[in-house]
Design a protein around this nucleic acid. Structure first.
Lengths: 203, 203
DNA sequence: TAAATTTGCTGAACAGTGTTTATAAAACAA
DNA sequence: TTGTTTTATAAACACTGTTCAGCAAATTTA
């Protein structure tokens, strides 16, 4: 009988509807500011209905968190067209910061917000996050192996660059660069990336 | 008449009492998790009373924010005993990370939490924050001037190091290093600092 | 087809949040 | 003592995430 199949399909469609509207609101207004009630209003259902499709707000967080890394990975993988690993690394830095400033609320969700990260640790959710990091790490390895960087620990370099990039992005997003003007921050970021990749390069 | 003076004193004492208890709770439980009602409970006054001494929760945020930088600046300034600027810089990095991991909730308040930063931009509050940054920036300048670093823009180097340090601290505090174990993160942080200050050094 | 059961949904409630306001009481001034 | 100012609070407002009893429609069973 096809009824249970149609029911399953309808269930999936409803979940998608909730998720689509929730994601839109999360991106526009941020995770904290988006309430279950406001999502319910938008899809014209009662708040309680949402709890028939998601255990709680955390579950929605994890789905959107992963979707963010999906989008990010897609952008990041475009740099694989660049043959020269050091140029690719530079391009990846550009992709990273562009993503952060084009979708600050997504970035917030993915890298800043406090959330129970146990699931992610267990590898249950975060496939694209891990893939993104591995892709980045592989480029770092290639840079070292081909002699574009001094022979250093791959993980130390990857860890350092990620920290550096996230530091700039998150301090900017959370407005902790108030000792500089916006224009200065922009130029300092460009200068910093050039300097960092400059000193790491094996010339 | 000394009555108005005593009243002023009592007002200040009450403000201090609220602030003392609030700070303790903020440090222990975090800013978001500490409610006005729970502070009121602890000092055995009604929640409304707190609003006679503070405009809103934001005002308490700013005071505690500045107090955090006061504590931080005090620790940072101890490194002024170190004559060699590059060694001092290294020591400042150590002070920074120690502060972040010893007082993660304070660090959260000072560097991560989303808050209206307009006051800080206007220099009304954030004296110790600015002083901390200037102190750090001066050491970077000294390193460059005395030839311990390659002749680079002081601000680019200061901006880069701050971003790098904050990146490590905040990713660790918000548990975004789940691709590594805790022990690995510890060693990677040490290795990263050594590598970073190594490549920046003018040898 | 009629009755029984399952499914999908919601209004109302619970326990919590920051904040405001009317009111009462205490302290001070005349 | 009366009038004024200061101080404190209970109660309410408008929110938040979440749960649950109950209703109505869809589906299955008799």
């Amino acid at each position: 009988m096809g009824i249970s199949e149609r029911k399953g399909r309808e269930k999936q469609e409803m979940r998608d509807l909730i998720l689509r509207e929730a994601t839109r609101m999360f991106i526009e207004e941020g995770y904290e500011k988006t309430s279950i009630r406001s999502i319910a209003d938008r899809i014209e259902y009662s708040p309680a209905t949402i709890y028939l499709y998601f255990k709680d707000k955390d579950e929605m967080f994890f789905v959107i968190h992963e979707q963010g890394f999906e989008k990010f990975l897609a952008k990041l993988e475009k740099t694989s067209a660049i043959g020269h690993p050091y140029e690719r690394l530079f391009s990846m830095g550009h992709v990273y910061l562009t993503f952060a400033f084009d979708h600050p609320e997504y970035y917030d969700l993915m890298f800043i917000i406090r959330a129970p990260m146990n699931k992610i640790a267990k590898d249950e959710e975060w496939h694209c996050g891990r893939k993104s990091f591995d892709f980045f790490r592989d480029t770092v390895r290639e840079c070292i192996e081909k002699g574009y960087m001094k022979p250093t620990s791959v993980d130390v370099v990857a860890f350092s660059i990620l920290s550096f990039m996230h530091g700039m992005a998150s301090l900017a997003i959370r407005e902790r660069f108030k000792m500089y003007t916006e224009e200065e921050v922009k130029q300092l970021m460009e200068g910093s990336i050039k300097m960092m990749l400059g000193v790491l390069e094996n010339k």
